[in-house]
């Protein structure tokens, strides 16, 4: 009986999700190319050759370094901003509460491609709004996306701008599970705002913070659309991400090689998640 409810899902799930994952794993040990697409079983096994080639490629190393910076800077930055917004909204704000919440959450629901297009223009060297505002203060703004030194940081800032609202909503829900009596008792004991935040909010928010860090981390490791639209990985690979690198190899028809990159990416996500669980583990 139960299986009749599970069957339609399982069928689609096996064909379009579980199956492809297994196929990708096998493919990563073969020399499958786009020319074999009609006859995928005729390929040869090459052992770890794809993985070794990927790890030895200078473009991969650059992409891995960029992705690491994007995650290690972007996740804490986005979490800090999201937490600040949530704590701010949780201080008994009554008026305009919905207005603030909608405003902060707005970038989350909009198409990342459309946002990237708008930000590309916003960050334009000459006719861009940001440099236009800076020029008003007599500052000569840099080429945010065309200068190797600034490009990746600009993309990180955009990602934090886009995703902080998502974390704000998660953190708000977490904050509302903390009993108000705790704050009142701490206030009676003379704890100031910062002490209450550090002594009550942060420890009790650990599970929620962990959830936010894991979800954001999984997303950030795969960042793709932003750089596809805004910089195409440039200038000089300064914003090349692992996902964009994999996509490039797919476009070149190197399917076995693409699968190897994808599994390295998967491994990175798994490792990041484990590290985060250790980092936020509640001390018993």
């Amino acid at each position: 009986m139960a299986w009749s409810f599970a069957l339609p899902f399982l069928l689609l799930f096996t064909v379009f999700m579980a199956g492809p994952i297994m196929v990708a794993l096998v493919t990563s040990f073969t020399d499958l190319r786009v020319t074999d697409i009609r006859n995928p079983l005729s390929v040869d096994f090459v052992g770890l050759e794809n993985y070794l080639a990927v790890l030895g490629d200078a473009r991969f190393q650059k992409a891995a370094a960029n992705t690491a910076v994007f995650v290690l800077v972007g996740v804490p930055l986005t979490m800090a901003l999201g937490l600040a917004a949530a704590v701010g909204l949780n201080q008994g704000i009554v008026r305009f509460r919905t207005f603030f919440r909608v405003g902060f959450y707005l970038p989350v629901v909009t198409s990342i491609v459309a946002i990237a297009v708008v930000w590309r223009l916003l960050l334009g060297t000459e006719a861009g709004l940001i440099n236009g505002i800076l020029a008003g203060f007599g500052i000569d703004g840099p080429g945010w996306l065309t200068d190797e030194r600034y490009a990746l940081w600009s993309i990180i800032a955009m990602a934090a701008w886009r995703n902080l609202g998502f974390l704000m909503v998660i953190f708000l829900a977490g904050l509302q599970t903390i009993p108000g009596d705790l704050y009142e008792a701490a206030e009676v004991d003379g704890a100031n705002l910062w002490q209450r935040f550090k002594g009550i909010t942060l420890p009790l928010m650990r599970p929620t913070l962990l959830f936010g860090a894991v979800i954001t981390g999984i997303g950030y490791v795969q960042f793709f659309e932003e750089v596809f639209v805004m910089t195409e990985g440039g200038p000089l690979n300064a914003t090349l991400s692992l996902a964009l690198y994999a996509y490039d190899q797919f476009s070149f028809g190197n399917y076995g090689y693409t699968a190897a990159i994808a599994f390295i990416l998967f491994l990175a996500i798994a490792m990041l998640t484990v590290v985060q669980f250790r980092l936020f583990r509640t001390e018993a």
């Binding site: 492809p20 990708a24 009609r38 995928p40 998967f266 996500i269």
Partner: peptide, 24 residues
């Protein structure tokens, strides 16, 4: 557990086999 576990699998893992499948 298996279904939930796929939440961690990056889209880039499945999309190449999916493309081969859809092409065929």
């Amino acid at each position: 557990a298996i279904v939930l576990g796929t939440l961690m699998v990056p889209a880039i893992v499945t999309f190449m086999p999916l493309f081969v499948l859809v092409a065929n």
